[in-house]
C-alpha cells in the first residue's frame, strides 16, 4: 500500500475510534447518575455549540490543510493546538532535516514533527493534571474562593486579545452583545438564540468594516 493511502486508512480508523471515545464519558455520567439529557436537550446543546463554534468547525480544518497535509490534519485536529504547537514542530523538523515544505519529503518529515509534538504535549498535560489535582485541595481558602472569578477574568482577557486586532469592531460587538443580552434576558429569550444573535451581529459588524476597508483601498 502506498504511503498516502496508508495515511488515509490509518487516519480514518483512528479518527473513527476517537469519535466514539469522545462521547463515552458523557454517556457514562448521563446513564450512571441518571442525569442523561433528553434528546431535545441534546439537540438544544448541539444548537448552542453549533451557533458558537460551527463556522470554525468548517473553516479551520480547510484553512490549515495546505500547511498541515493529510497526516498532519488527522493528528493535529485530534490533538488540537494546530497553530501554536503542531505547525511550529512540523516546520522545525523540516528545517533540520533539510527538506522543503510542500514536497513529499517535506510532508513525511512534517508528519514526524507533528506526531512527536503530540507525544510531548500529551505527557506535559498528563503531568500538569496529576500535579494540579493533587495541589488544588491543598490551596488555602482565599485562593479557592478566587476561583469563582475565573470566568469574568478569562473572558475579559480573551475578548481584549481578540478585539485588539480590530478595536472599533470589538467595541461595537461588545456593545451590541450587552444590549442583546440585557433586553433578551428581560424578554426571556432562550440563551442559545441569544448566542446565535450575538455571533451574527459580530459577523455583520466585521463585514461592515471589511467592506468599508475594501472600498477605501479600491478608491486610492
Amino acid at each position: 500500500m502506498s504511503y498516502d493511502k496508508k495515511v488515509i486508512r490509518n487516519g480514518r480508523i483512528t479518527m473513527g475510534l476517537a469519535i466514539i471515545a469522545n462521547f463515552i464519558p458523557a454517556i457514562y455520567v448521563g446513564m450512571h447518575y441518571d442525569v442523561m439529557p433528553t434528546l431535545s436537550v441534546i439537540l438544544q446543546i448541539w444548537g448552542v455549540v453549533a451557533a458558537s463554534y460551527g463556522i470554525t468547525w468548517i473553516i479551520q480544518p480547510i484553512a490549515y490543510y495546505p500547511t498541515m497535509g493529510a497526516a498532519g490534519s488527522y493528528i493535529g485536529w485530534l490533538a488540537g493546538s494546530c497553530g501554536d504547537i503542531r505547525m511550529p514542530a512540523a516546520a522545525m523538523a523540516q528545517k533540520v532535516a533539510g527538506v522543503e515544505p510542500g514536497t513529499h519529503e517535506g510532508d513525511v518529515v512534517g508528519t514526524i514533527g507533528v506526531a512527536c509534538s503530540v507525544l510531548v504535549s500529551a505527557s506535559m498535560i498528563t503531568i500538569f493534571v496529576l500535579i494540579g489535582s493533587w495541589i488544588i485541595p491543598l490551596l488555602p481558602e482565599s485562593v479557592t474562593n478566587s476561583f469563582s472569578y475565573i470566568l469574568p477574568s478569562l473572558f475579559g482577557a480573551i475578548f481584549v486579545d481578540n478585539a485588539r486586532k480590530n478595536l472599533k469592531a470589538g467595541i461595537l460587538t461588545l456593545a451590541a452583545a450587552m444590549a442583546i443580552l440585557f433586553f433578551g434576558s428581560k424578554l426571556g429569550i432562550n440563551s442559545g438564540i441569544l448566542t446565535l444573535l450575538v455571533v451574527l451581529c459580530g459577523i455583520l459588524i466585521s463585514r461592515m468594516f471589511f467592506v468599508a476597508a475594501r472600498k477605501k483601498s479600491s478608491e486610492t
Binding site: N162, N166, A169, A177, V198, G202, R207
Partner: peptide, 11 residues
C-alpha cells in the same frame, strides 16, 4: 472566522 470568535467571546 475572527468575527465569529469575537462574537462568541463577546457573548
Amino acid at each position: 472566522m475572527g468575527a465569529a470568535t469575537m462574537g462568541m467571546f463577546g457573548y
